[in-house]
């Protein structure tokens, strides 16, 4: 901003000095209060009667180092599952949401099927879907034998698509009807209006919600361990059983948090940016 190089009135200079002072004060206050708060929490915890035992069985550095290679290898499995599940969920949920907006009698069976699907899989607990898909579907012997990791990914896609398709549908309905009207009045057909005009706007509207679902999925990939996949959670379990020490769980937990943090921050940043754009830089 060239404004600072121009001559500025004394009143504005005074206001700037005041704001600078206020700013420095807020930083100082928040710094001190954070330190005080952390110290109080720390002292309270280490003075509890059982702290020594808890520290040994949950925060043991040696166990953590020993468990590290196995847990990190397991986490890599989680990341792979997450990658394929995200792609699967995006494709399936957009498809479901679009099917539910189709009009015309010929589409009734598809529409009904999509509605039944979302009802069913939003109601079913993920862990039951995992068991049914992971142990049930391979029994059909329809497909060549696939790994538990494969079926776990399928189960995640099935459950999360039901949620995410509802988010997309909400977004589609949030696009003002006048947009569809304008598209149709140009001669675009229903499909074109959806694809070119409605869906792109819907996706923008629901992106923060979708990112949040992504964060939720990021930790739910840990549940595939119930199928016997040696992911981070399973690896931690094995290490825990071997040493009678719970530290590997803490290690796995921290790794999951680290994995989720970038996405959480990105979601916050994107939401803030959307809000800033809508408020056009106003103060409140």
């Amino acid at each position: 901003m060239p404004a600072s190089r121009e001559t500025v009135s004394d009143v504005e200079l005074g206001r700037r000095a005041y704001r600078r002072k206020q700013n420095a004060r807020s930083v100082l206050i928040s710094f001190v209060s954070t330190i005080v708060f952390a110290v109080i929490v720390w002292i309270t915890i280490i003075n509890t009667p059982g702290w020594n035992r808890v520290q040994r069985s949950f925060f043991d550095l040696e166990t953590a180092i020993a468990a590290w290679p196995r847990v990190i290898a397991g986490l890599w499995i989680n990341v792979q599952v997450l990658f394929f599940a995200v792609i699967g969920v995006l494709v399936l949920s957009v498809l479901l949401a679009t099917i539910r907006t189709l009009r015309g009698p010929i589409w009734f069976p598809l529409r009904a099927l999509a509605a039944a699907y979302t009802d069913l899989f939003r109601g079913l607990p993920l862990i039951i879907v995992l068991f049914l898909v992971g142990f049930g579907l391979p029994g059909l012997e329809l497909f060549p034998r696939n790994s538990a990791q494969f079926w776990g990914t399928i189960a995640l896609i099935l459950t999360y698509s039901a949620y995410v398709s509802e988010v997309f549908r909400a977004g589609i309905e949030a696009v003002h009807p006048s947009q569809r009207l304008a598209a149709r009045s140009l001669g675009l057909n229903h499909g074109q209006s959806m694809r070119i005009v409605v869906l792109p706007q819907a996706v923008r509207k629901v992106t923060p919600a979708l990112m949040n679902d992504f964060v939720a999925m990021q930790k739910d990939v840990g549940l595939i361990s119930v199928l016997g996949v040696v992911d981070a959670v399973r690896a931690a379990q094995i290490e825990t059983a071997a040493n009678f020490n719970f530290t590997p769980y803490v290690v796995a937990g921290l790794l999951f948090v680290l994995l989720a943090l970038p996405m959480i921050r990105l979601t916050d940043w994107y939401t803030a940016r959307l809000r800033a754009r809508e408020q056009m830089g106003s103060l409140v």
């Binding site: 304008a182 001669g187 706007q201």
Partner: peptide, 21 residues
Amino acid sequence: ADRVRARIGTVFQQFNLFPHI
């Protein structure tokens, strides 16, 4: 109907431009 609408131009009170393109 789509072909008929393509032969007619319409302008709305609220413009209804597509904001994303």
